[in-house]
C-alpha cells in the first residue's frame, strides 16, 4: 500500500517538477516572477489537445510540437509584456503578468468552455511490480521527466546559449560586463520555460484533463516548490517537485483526501516561518 502511494507520488511529483523547472528558470534568468506561467501551462495542455484531436497527430508527435509552439509563446510573452516593464521593478512585472493570466485564463473559458477534456495519449495497459500497479501512461510521465531533465542539462551545460543563461543567473552584472546580450538570454529562458510548462500541461491533460483553470494549482505549487528548493535552482526544482508530489499523495492517502492541497500550503507556511532569513538573503544576493 505504501509502495503504491510512493509510486503515485513520484508520478504527480514528476509533473510538478517539470512545471517548477520552467518557473524557476525565468526567475533565475530575469529575477522576475511570471504569474502568467500557469496560463502558459494551460495553453500548452490545449495546444497538445488540439494537435492530437483536430490535427490527428499522435501524442508523442503532438507534445514536442506543442512545446515548440509554447516556446514561441514564451518568447512573445517576454517581448510583448514583460520586457517593456522590466526596468520598473517587481511590482510592475507582477501586474502585467497577472493581467496576462486573466486574459489567457478567462479567454480560454470563452473559447474552450469550462468542460474538462482528456488528451488521448494512445498508451494503455499497466505494469505490476510486486503489489505496486502503475498504468503505462503514468510511466510515460516519469519517462518524460527523465528525458526532459536530460535535455535541459544538455541545453544548460553544452549549448552556448545555455551556458550564457547560467552565467546570467549567477551574476547578471558580470554577464553583462563580458558582453552577453541579457535580453536574448532572458528571451531564451522564457522559451525553455514555455516548453516545460507545455510538457507539464500536456501530461496533466493526459492523465487528468485539460481545462482553463488547470494551471492554477501548478502555478501555486511551483511557487511552493521553488521556495522549497531555492529560487532559480534546477536540482532544487526537481527534488522539490518530487517532494511535494509525495507529501500530497501520502497526506491525501493517510490523513485527508479533501484537504490534500491544504497540506502543501501548510508545508509552505512552515518553510516560510522557519527559513525566512534564508529566503530573504536569496533575494538579496
Amino acid at each position: 500500500m505504501i509502495a503504491q502511494q510512493l509510486a503515485n507520488g513520484v508520478v504527480l511529483g514528476s509533473i510538478y517538477a517539470l512545471s517548477a523547472l520552467g518557473f524557476t528558470l525565468i526567475f533565475g534568468a530575469a529575477r522576475v516572477v511570471n504569474f502568467a506561467y500557469g496560463a502558459l501551462l494551460m495553453l500548452g495542455g490545449f495546444a497538445t489537445l488540439l494537435l492530437t484531436q483536430s490535427a490527428g497527430l499522435g501524442f508523442f508527435v503532438a507534445l514536442p510540437l506543442a512545446m515548440l509552439i509554447m516556446a514561441g509563446a514564451g518568447v512573445l510573452v517576454f517581448y510583448l509584456v514583460v520586457r517593456p516593464v522590466l526596468g520598473r521593478g517587481d511590482l510592475a512585472v507582477l501586474l502585467v503578468t497577472t493581467g496576462l493570466l486573466y486574459i489567457l485564463r478567462e479567454g480560454a473559458i470563452i473559447v474552450f468552455g469550462t468542460e474538462p477534456r482528456q488528451i488521448d495519449m494512445g498508451v494503455e495497459g499497466i505494469v505490476e511490480i510486486g503489489d505496486v500497479v502503475i498504468t503505462n501512461q503514468r510511466l510515460v510521465v516519469i519517462g518524460c521527466l527523465v528525458v526532459l531533465v536530460g535535455l535541459l542539462y544538455v541545453v544548460l551545460y553544452r549549448l552556448r546559449i545555455g551556458k550564457a543563461l547560467r552565467a546570467v543567473a549567477q551574476n547578471r552584472a558580470g554577464a553583462e560586463a563580458i558582453g552577453l546580450n541579457i535580453n536574448r538570454v532572458t528571451a531564451f529562458a522564457f522559451a525553455v520555460s514555455g516548453g516545460l510548462a507545455c510538457a507539464a500541461g500536456g501530461l496533466l491533460g493526459a492523465i487528468y484533463a485539460a481545462e482553463p483553470d488547470m494551471g492554477d494549482l501548478p502555478l501555486l505549487k511551483s511557487f511552493v516548490i521553488v521556495i522549497f528548493g531555492g529560487l532559480g535552482s534546477v536540482p532544487g526544482a526537481i527534488v522539490g517537485g518530487l517532494a511535494i508530489g509525495l507529501i500530497e499523495t501520502l497526506s491525501g492517502a493517510y490523513i485527508s483526501f479533501a484537504f490534500k492541497d491544504g497540506f502543501t500550503f501548510v508545508v509552505l507556511i512552515a518553510v516560510l516561518l522557519f527559513r525566512p532569513t534564508g529566503l530573504f538573503s536569496s533575494r538579496m544576493t
Partner: peptide
C-alpha cells in the same frame, strides 16, 4: 463573461 478579460487587459 468578458469582464475578467477586460480587467486583465486594463491592468496590462
Amino acid at each position: 463573461e468578458y469582464r475578467p478579460v477586460l480587467m486583465g487587459a486594463l491592468l496590462i
